[in-house]
Amino acid sequence: MAKKNVILLLLISGVVSLFVMSCAPEKREEATDLLTDTMITEDVGITDEAVGEMISSVPNPVEMSALLQKSDVVYSQDLLNPDSNIDNYNTNFERSLNLGVYGTDLVYMNIYDRTVSTLAYLRNVKDLADDLRIGQFFDYETLNRLSESSRNVDSVLYITNRGFDNMTRYLIDQNRSSIAILVAYGTWIESLYISTNVQTKPPNKDLIYQRIGEQKIVLDNLLLLLSNFRNDPNIDELFMDLMDLKKEFDNVSITYVYKEPKMKEVDGSIVVVDKSRSEVNINQEIVDGIARQVNYIRNKIIK
């Protein structure tokens, strides 16, 4: 009797050890191949500091959207990147660009008090940020909460902006500047897209057109930033497309008249009086040209 039990036990232990033997540590070896023996510093030709300096010149979508709203431009949901498109974004390149795009969309919706419909976009921004490993800067929970009511628009905007700024800074700090630049680019292109596709009448139209024209300055900065990462074929393509856009923008001429600004003290703070002026020469045709290229670039980005 006891012998039977012993045999049983042995048999079973055999089976068990079979199972246990099926450990799979080989896969780990594969992965650790990715670890490099020496520290590779990105020989990019541009310092993090320089990137940080320049990237702040890409305007915040808040400004763009605020302008649009101030100009009585009607809100148009169709202009936005459909939130379902997020399924299409798999690589860091696609994700960072569209993080910017959705960020702008989010701001746009908030400024027009469409806070409740922002939930899907909040989600998208959060997901893309997580995928890029910068999600910890995006206070999703708070934003979600605040979005329940349109009284909190200002807070929402503030937190969103802060989130993006922090993400950008972090990326630069972590030596992932290219991603930061792409995010900024996405933000910018979406703002431009909305502005160029919006329906409006003068005199608001002129204001908006002016603002569009002024983006010429930003474009140059972006080109400069992008030019450092052209070894990446995707970025290179982006760069080339932006060059084409630049050609359109070359039709815009901005004239400046500079006067000496003066500082005044008013109520314990400094107020500047500046008589300088700038004038943007832009017309419908140019805008159309810009719009065409912007459409092309933007739609390529959002797939």
Binding site: I217, N221, G268, V272, S278
Partner: peptide
């Protein structure tokens, strides 16, 4: 925000911009 003569620090600068640019 800093006035060298008085040594005062001002909390903010207010700037109405009339010339767009960098």
């Amino acid at each position: 925000t800093y006035d060298v003569d008085s040594g005062r620090h001002f909390p903010y600068i207010e700037y109405p911009v009339s010339a767009s640019g960098q």
